[in-house]
C-alpha cells in the first residue's frame, strides 16, 4: 500500500474559455501544492499534517476562494470557514465566520486538539484564535480587488433579477454571471493517506459571493463537505446547500461501509445519483491508497498523486 494525495480548488461552471491569466496561476498553485504534499508524505509526515499544510498553502494563494482571496458577503466582508478530520480517531474540528485569521484550517485543527468542542463560530472562534495566538491580520488582507469586482457584478445581477420578474431578463442576468465565469467557485481541499492507511481530510472556503452575513455552507459540516474515517477521506466542493442536503462526504464512506462499494464506485454513485447535476465535485482517497477526483459540474480545479508515480492535474473532464 502506498501513499496517495488529492487536492481541489473548487468545482463549478468553469468556462472552457477561461482566460489564461485566470487559469495559469491556479494551475501553478495546484502543482506547487501537490509537490508540497508529496514531499511531506515522502518525509513521513502524518496525513493530518499533510492536509493542513497543503490547505494552508491554498489559503495563502489569492486565486482561490479561501483565506486570502475569499469571496465577499453582501456587506463586502469576508467570513471564512474550514474543517479538518482525522480518519483513524474520527477526531475533527471546524470553524465558521472568521474575519481575521490568516489560516482558518489551522484554527480548526486547534479547535479539534485544544477544546472539548468540535465547532466554534464567529466571535467565539475569533476570541479563541486570539487566545491561541494564531496569526491574524487586518480584514483588508483577505479582500482582493478581483473579489470586490465579483461582488459588484453579483449585486448588479441580483438587482436585475429583483427588478424584472419576467423570465427573459433573468436569463440574461444569469448569462452575465456565467460570462464572468468562475465567481462562485474556488473552495479548497485536500485528502491524504499514508503507507499505513492513516487518512485525513481538510476543506477551507470563503463561501459564496454575495452570501448573506452569517451564512454557513457545507465546508465546515462533518459529513457534508468534509469527512474521514478508517476507510476513506473525502473533501467536497460545489453548491453548499445541495452538498449539505445530500451529506455528500459521509455518503461516500457509508456506501463503502454498508454496500461494500469501492472508492471509485462509491464516489461515482454519490456524484451521479445523490447530488443534483451541476452541484458537486469531490476528491477522495481510500485506506488502500486509491485516489479519485469526480464532479458533475463543468469543471473542477484538481490534482492528485500516488506513491507508484501516478499523477494527474486538470480543470475540465479528462478525455
Amino acid at each position: 500500500m502506498g501513499w496517495a494525495i488529492a487536492l481541489h480548488g473548487g468545482a463549478g461552471d468553469i468556462p472552457v474559455t477561461l482566460p489564461p491569466e485566470r487559469r495559469v496561476p491556479r494551475e501553478a498553485t495546484l502543482r506547487r501544492c501537490l509537490d508540497i504534499g508529496v514531499a511531506a508524505l515522502q518525509s513521513k509526515r502524518s496525513p493530518l499534517d499533510v492536509v493542513e499544510l497543503v490547505v494552508r498553502e491554498l489559503e495563502n494563494c489569492p486565486h482561490f476562494n479561501a483565506g486570502r482571496g475569499s469571496v465577499l458577503t453582501s456587506d463586502g466582508t469576508v467570513e471564512m470557514e474550514a474543517c479538518i478530520m482525522d480518519g483513524k480517531t474520527k477526531k475533527c474540528g471546524a470553524v465558521s465566520g472568521l474575519t481575521t485569521v490568516v489560516n482558518p484550517i489551522s484554527l480548526s485543527r486547534l479547535v479539534m486538539e485544544k477544546t472539548p468542542h468540535i465547532y466554534l463560530a464567529f466571535d467565539g472562534a475569533e476570541a479563541f484564535a486570539r487566545e491561541q495566538g494564531v496569526e491574524t491580520l487586518d480584514r483588508s488582507h483577505f479582500i482582493t480587488a478581483e473579489n470586490i469586482e465579483r461582488l459588484k457584478q453579483a449585486k448588479e445581477a441580483n438587482r436585475v433579477q429583483l427588478d424584472y420578474t419576467l423570465p427573459t431578463p433573468k436569463e440574461q442576468a444569469k448569462e452575465t454571471i456565467v460570462a464572468e465565469g468562475d465567481s462562485q467557485i474556488g473552495t479548497v481541499g485536500c485528502v491524504a493517506v499514508d503507507n499505513n492507511g492513516n487518512l485525513a481530510t481538510a476543506t477551507s472556503t470563503g463561501g459564496l459571493v454575495n452570501k448573506m452575513v452569517g451564512r454557513i455552507g457545507d465546508t465546515p459540516i462533518i459529513g457534508a463537505g468534509t469527512y474521514a474515517n478508517s476507510l476513506c477521506a473525502v473533501s467536497a466542493t460545489g453548491k453548499g446547500e445541495a452538498i449539505m442536503r445530500a451529506t455528500v462526504a459521509r455518503d461516500v464512506a457509508a456506501l463503502m461501509e454498508y454496500k461494500g462499494l469501492s472508492l471509485k464506485e462509491a464516489t461515482a454513485y454519490v456524484i451521479e445519483e445523490c447530488a443534483p447535476k451541476g452541484t458537486a465535485g469531490l476528491v477522495a482517497v481510500s485506506a488502500k491508497g486509491e485516489v479519485t477526483m469526480q464532479f458533475n459540474t463543468t469543471g473542477m480545479f484538481r490534482a492528485c498523486a500516488t506513491e507508484d508515480g501516478y499523477s494527474e492535474m486538470g480543470i475540465w473532464p479528462s478525455v
Binding site: 465566520g97 463560530a121 448573506m212 452575513v213 452569517g214 446547500e241
Partner: peptide, 8 residues
Amino acid sequence: HSYLAFSG
C-alpha cells in the same frame, strides 16, 4: 441558504 448563524 440552508444555514445562518449569529448576527446573520
